[in-house]
């Protein structure tokens, strides 16, 4: 396994955000995570990337617990091993798109020359026209694509993408989807997607749903609309655990219902 999250819990004040969450992802796999707003999806990505300390649990990357790492190793880990596409992009405001994309590559003392790569990538993400604009002047979708380009410039092993198609039209969203598929198959990257975009969920090898602090696996009946009402999208192991550890009556809704909520 490339990454394993083991029994991670997180509080903010008295509120339980994550409750004994476990998850794992291997090279060349895509995982989709859905869940209602405020459910803790971004927090989970924060823990995986070492930005946020959980109350308990372990986060193993290549079998090493990143929570034990000091600042220096974590920083390197963030720079080289993971690519983070933030929900709110978080581009550096006084740099152009080009500089934003190039930035993570410049943290190494002697950086790699990524100029060619950036231009190719920009062409495929359709942002070559806006490379010299600053984030302020970009549309939401353009910012999102710049953020994606920045996340993959260092060829990370793991991509954490928080709503990466949230601001995109159908056509561009499809291109992003294809990009993720390509990264998965060609570069064998592991990708964790937080998304509500049905077409993105389709490319996922596994789909989890986060609700009331619990992460539950969603099973998809392939292309059978009749399954809609059946309550099979539940991982039995998780179900069993839940019954033991909490009284909370968490119902894992089938995919379609989640979509309706949005």
């Amino acid at each position: 396994m490339l990454l394993t999250v083991e029994n991670v819990s997180l509080h903010f004040g008295k509120r339980m955000i994550l409750n004994n969450v476990s998850l794992s992802v291997d090279d060349g796999k895509i995982i989709a995570i859905t869940g209602k707003s405020g459910g803790g999806k971004t927090s989970l990505l924060g823990i995986i990337s070492g930005l946020l300390e959980p109350d308990s649990g372990r986060v193993l990357y290549k079998n090493k617990n990143i929570l034990r790492w000091g600042d220096f190793r974590r920083s390197r880990f963030r720079n080289r091993e993971i690519g983070f596409v933030f929900q709110f992009f978080n581009l550096l405001p006084d740099m152009t798109s080009y500089q934003n994309i190039r930035y993570p590559s410049m943290i190494k003392f002697i950086p790699r020359d990524v100029d060619r790569e950036i231009r190719d990538m920009a062409a495929s993400l359709n942002i070559n026209e806006i490379l010299h604009q600053k984030p302020m002047t970009l549309s939401g979708g353009e910012r999102q694509r710049v953020a994606i380009a920045r996340a993959i410039i260092n060829h990370p092993r793991l991509i954490l993408a928080d709503e990466p198609t949230g601001n995109l039209d159908v056509v561009t969203a499809a291109e992003i989807k294809n990009l993720f598929v390509r990264l998965k198959t060609e570069e064998r990257m592991a990708i964790i997607l937080v998304t509500h975009d049905k077409s993105l969920i389709e490319i996922a090898d596994e789909h989890y749903h986060l609700e009331e602090g619990r992460l539950l696996k969603v099973m998809h009946e392939e292309a059978k609309p009749s399954v809609k009402s059946k309550r099979t999208g539940v991982n039995s192991e998780h179900q069993a655990k839940k019954a033991k550890t909490t009284q909370a009556k968490t119902e894992v809704k089938p995919m379609t219902k989640v979509k309706q909520k949005r």
């Binding site: 920083s75 390197r76 963030r78 080289r80 978080n90 006084d94 943290i107």
Partner: peptide, 16 residues
């Protein structure tokens, strides 16, 4: 502060 934390997130260590 936003800029510094972003730099940190993108891979700068505290020391840097």
């Amino acid at each position: 502060s936003q800029k510094f934390s972003l730099k940190r997130v993108l891979g700068f260590s505290k020391l840097q």
